[in-house]
């Protein structure tokens, strides 16, 4: 009777304790699991960093058909680029990592011009005067559409989770996002992605 009473009293405590501990463990696993998300299927990394990614054929999302005004004032429609590999770079003249990656973009755009790859900038949160000075200063010859309020950027969020500036997307010939660099890119990272997407490297 003595033993029985104690174990019943204990059970009364232990069951809720066990429930609470289980709930806590589940919560911790959920929370920790959410932090490491993103490594879903169909994604491989370039150059050992998780900021430069390649999407496998079945995991590429289509890019929206957007139109905009370029820094020089002419209209530009993305539809004109269909059938080509396009590098879309989101940048701003105020953004220091954008300034760091600009020389690499200038070089790569010239290098891949003969293979039919086109580069296109989306200039966010900027004024045309500062943006023009940026393009002149870094010798950027490809066009940029002006996106002062991030409206075009928002359009792209259905295709790829753009979380900051700069972001560089590589769009394949069927108009889908095949690769991306989140944050400042380098010559070697973007070159590696372009080799793969243009089919010059297996």
């Amino acid at each position: 009777m003595f033993r029985g009473t104690v174990s019943r009293a204990k059970r009364r405590v232990l069951i809720p304790a066990a429930l609470a501990v289980t709930a806590l463990v589940v919560a911790v696993v959920l929370v920790a699991g959410a932090g490491g998300g993103g490594a879903a299927g169909g994604v491989s990394y370039v150059g050992g960093s998780t900021s430069a990614v390649l999407y496998a054929a079945g995991h590429r999302h289509p890019v929206p058909d957007f139109t905009g005004t370029t820094l020089t004032g002419s209209r530009l429609s993305f539809a004109a680029y269909r059938g080509r590999v396009v590098v879309v770079n989101f940048w701003g003249s105020w953004c220091t990592p954008c300034r760091a990656e600009a020389p690499a973009l200038a070089v790569l755009s010239a290098k891949y011009q003969p293979s039919g790859v086109r580069f296109l900038g989306v200039d966010v949160n900027d004024d045309p005067a500062s943006a023009g000075a940026f393009a002149r200063g870094f010798g950027i010859r490809y066009p940029s559409v002006s996106d002062p309020g991030y409206v075009i950027t928002q359009d792209f969020s259905s295709a790829v989770p753009i979380s900051g500036t700069p972001t560089t997307l590589v769009v394949d010939r069927s108009g889908r996002v095949a690769g991306a660099v989140f944050g400042s890119t380098t010559y070697s990272e973007l070159n590696a992605i372009l080799m793969r997407v243009t089919g010059k490297a297996a």
């Binding site: 929370v31 309020g149 991030y150 950027t153 928002q154 969020s157 989770p161 979380s163």
Partner: peptide, 29 residues
């Protein structure tokens, strides 16, 4: 006189909860 679209890179500060993904923002302007 300016517009902004509700998307991650447009926000000056963003403090998401643990289970909020990048695509979870409502697309208003």
């Amino acid at each position: 006189g300016q517009t902004f679209a509700d998307t991650r890179s447009a926000l000056d500060e963003f403090h998401p909860g643990r289970l909020v993904g990048g695509g979870d923002l409502p697309p208003f302007t």
